[in-house]
Each structure stands twice: as C-alpha cells, then as structure tokens.
Amino acid sequence: MLLAGAVRLPLEASLTGELRAAGLLPAPLAIGTRDHIGQTSSAVALGGLRTLVATFLNLRAYTFFTECRWDDVAGTFDTIVELAPHTIYYWETGAWHQAFNASSYYLNDSNLPSLRRDAAWRASVLNGRAFLERGIRNNPGDPKLNAYLGFLLTDHYKSRAFRDADATFLAASEAYRIAADGRDALPFLRRFQLYALARVPSREAEALALARELYQNRANHTVTMQCVYFSLESHANRSLIDPGSFAVSVFGSAQQAYATLTHYWLRGSEHLPVHGVASALRVLEAQLGIPADKSVFLQHPAQDAEDE
C-alpha cells in the first residue's frame, strides 16, 4: 500500500497543480470559513459539496437581506465566495447588496445622525467596490465583473464616495476596456469605456481617438455618444470649430441639436465632458429664437470657461 502510495503521490500532486492552474480546483477551505459555516456544513463542504453549501448559504443571505441585516449579508457572502469563488453571480450579488442596498438603507436611516449616516453610506459603497475588486482578482479578466465595476465607479449617485474622481473614472475606463475586450462583448461596453475616459481631464486626446474610431460605426451613434463626440471634438479644435454649425452637422438639425444638447447639459451630475456645449446652446437658442425665460441656463448655468 505504501509502495502504491509512493507511485501515485507525485502524479496526484502534479494533477492537483494542473487543476488548480486551470481554475478547476478551488484553493483549500480556510480555517475561518470552516468556522463560519459550522460543523455540519463544513463536513458537507469537505465531502466535496462546496457549491451545495454555497447554494444554501445564498438562501440564508436572502433572508438576511429581507431583514436588512447588512453585516450578516456581507459576512455570509464572504463565506459563499470562499466556497464558490468562480461563481460570478455571488460576487455581483454580494457587491450589489453592499454598494447599493446597504448604502441606500444607511443613507435613509433616520435613527442615525447625519454624519454617521453619510459615513455608513460611504463605507458600504467602498465595501461593495472592494468586494467586487476581490472578485476580479479571483476571476482575472472576467467581463461581467469588470463591467459591473465600471458601472459602480461611474454611477453618479456613488461618485461622492470615491475621493479621487479622476482616478475613479480612469479605473472605470480600464474595467470597461477589459469587459469590452472579452469574448462576445456587447457593443455598449466600448462606448462606456469612452464615457469613463472622457471624464478624466488629462485624457481628452486619448478619448477623442477612441471616440473617432467608434463614431465611424453608425450603430454607435447613440445620443450620449454623439454628445461626447461633439464635446471632445470641440475641445480639440476649439479655435477651428463653429459650435452652432458643428452641432447641426453632428445631430442633423438645429432643433435636434438643441433638444439633445439641452438634455445632455442638464446631466451635469454625471461629470460627462461639456466642452463647447454651452457655446453651441447659446448659438442655437439665438438661432431658434428661444425666449430668455425658457433658456436652459436658467436651470443649469455655465460654470466656467471650459463649459463654453
């Protein structure tokens, strides 16, 4: 028996390494995880049924979610992803609970003083981001997780939680790039990469190059894409472009250009680039005879020269 064991030991060690490298075999269960799931579940998990235990814990997490026990939700998802680290659904759901559900709950929790509410909201958003980034480290290059990270980092309701806006948008752009490079990636992901990159002040040239490339495909002529393209071109060629006529050439007509750019201008909280937009709107308002009391600038005034 010992002899047979000596023969198979190196073979099994090599196959284990091969399976781990291929992501077909998870890392051994950590002692902490064994404590969290209890003796019975631990025995089941060690009996080769880790995903089964993860499924049951997922149901338990749902109960915690309905009871707004956010610490328990987070703790349960920490255990779930230890058991099933390659199930993307668990990473997405765990991050969603922390960054969206728990954070909104704390923001609206009238039992907490304002400062603590804000701190708890921010901590939840950051926990959600950290959880998602951990998921990406466990599943490098996964398009879904990267797309979800990009979505979280560009959510304008969450942007206040991330201190360095430029670094955040840059990280979002990179996440969208990885997602867009994935197999069978949906076309909007590349546009979202552009939108994130265009928000970083020092990266306009890089963003314009991508915008021009995307703009060659008519399928990419969505409203936001047209506006971002208009803004980036206006920034790069501010002395050469007449804002009014360039807007008409991009949007098709003065009416269409005014309607679209007005809506875009009012999306100020999204931090999308607005170079040349105010100038174009002023020209179009004059051209279309928009009365001063109906001007878009009454709702959202131009802030600085960059807007112009």
Partner: peptide, 27 residues
C-alpha cells in the same frame, strides 16, 4: 496519510462544472 489514503479532492472539479466551467476531456 498521503501514502495510505486516496485523494478525493481531485474529484471536486465537479464544483467548477457547477460554476459553469468546461471540463476538458484530458482532465
């Protein structure tokens, strides 16, 4: 323990399949 007992962890590749990964024929 390594010499006498069989290694059952190798068969936990089942978990990876449940998670949506493909199992190569060679494995």
């Amino acid at each position: 323990v390594s010499l006498v007992l069989p290694d059952f962890q190798l068969f936990n590749v089942i978990d990876a399949v449940i998670e949506g990964q493909a199992m190569p024929l060679l494995i």
